[in-house]
Nucleic acid binder design. Structure first.
Lengths: 205, 205
DNA sequence: TAATAAAGAACGGGCGTTCGTTTTAGGGAG
DNA sequence: CTCCCTAAAACGAACGCCCGTTCTTTATTA
């Protein structure tokens, strides 16, 4: 099929990435072979290497894809409501990614964290991703503090890191820790965050 | 050197594990070769394979070592003071592991998380490790609730998971996230946890 | 001297990757 | 419209390297 249009090419690329992601989620980056990806995507090595110049290239593309998905999620949630509801919306979005471990590919996140220590491109992408989340949380917190929604004595930078940690930790515990009751966990997190909201007495003080 | 004593053998084993851990921390499990470990420990392949029957065997030994170190840390902190100070002691211990990334090997933790998805033994060890922390936190929280130190409406199971997540997330952000100001982060965490302690008004209510 | 420990050359297999070949479809000539 | 022709796309056997591991040989000491 020569001279196919651009959409065809992009679709092929996406198909390969999807297959690769499935393999990576199941067996990790290093235990999945190129042949695994070929088999999963019903493509030959020749075809595969037309779209990606190496295995690393695929990994990097997946990292990038994750980054873009995350940023899209943030942008989407950004529009609505006050600080508290923005935070809760984001929390719901991200935590629900963990619900069906096989379909959503948070296992790949753990792989990427490991990969970051030896692949600079991957590391840069992750730094950007985490940085984007962090910046967004900081912005929300600062605005909320200005509005009197959140106590002024909490450090926005650290608080943002804490929120991110609560999500990352949930990933770890879902993947390797055994039995995390996700929604009880989320409820607990929300309650914790709620205690940081200014209550009536403090507003008047 | 034939017929050496037991201490000699154990020391050799430890030396290999230490070298391996250093390699793994720098390059990850899959990018470090057996030759890397041999070079680092100044040992030949023959010697190495006298002490460990495979590369996986080394990885599992390191996972086990991590588990034991963690449990020792818990046991050590368990003896002292009320719930709040126990929690703070544990937090200080674990977070200080993150201070000098090159010497303490928390990078290996991230590797282990990834490895757990494809190596059952490693997974079991990690489940045990996280489980031990979780159980210990639950115990502390329950006791503290009985003593009236901590609000009774927080779910101990989830709260314990949250605490663990705060540590795991810190690892991720230190390793791959760029610039986490660790002690500001810890201060923020402690303050959050403090808000969950019953304050005077509530005791009287 | 016998048994253990260490050495290190050698091996076998599997992996990522390449490359010569085959298939496919658009486009110009008749 | 039909028939090539051409270039893109896919194929898949083959390659070569590297890694984990083994095995024979050498050193060491009780």
């Amino acid at each position: 099929m020569p001279k196919v249009d651009k959409a065809y090419l992009e679709q092929r690329r996406a198909q390969i990435l999807k297959s690769a992601k499935a393999c990576f989620a199941k067996n990790g980056f290093h235990k999945t072979t190129m042949r695994d990806i070929m088999k999963k995507s019903n493509l030959s090595s020749g075809a595969l290497y037309r779209y990606f110049k190496s295995k690393e290239d695929i990994i990097e593309a997946i990292a990038l894809q994750t980054l873009e998905a995350n940023i899209a999620t943030i942008d989407d949630a950004k529009r609505k409501g006050n600080a508290r509801s923005q935070i809760e919306t984001l929390a719901d979005r991200f935590f629900s990614l963990l619900e069906k471990p096989e379909e959503k590919f948070t296992s790949v996140d753990v792989e990427l964290w490991g990969e970051a220590s030896r692949n600079k491109k991957v590391k840069n992408i992750l730094v950007k991703s985490i940085g984007a989340h962090h910046a967004e949380f900081v912005k929300i917190i600062l605005q909320a503090q200005a509005n009197g929604e959140i106590r002024r004595n909490v450090d926005p930078e650290s608080m943002a890191s804490v929120m991110i940690a609560l999500f990352q930790g949930a990933i770890v515990q879902m993947r390797v820790g055994g039995n995390l009751d996700l929604w009880k966990y989320v409820a607990c997190v929300k309650e914790m965050l709620a205690t940081l909201l200014i209550n009536e007495e403090e507003v008047n003080a």
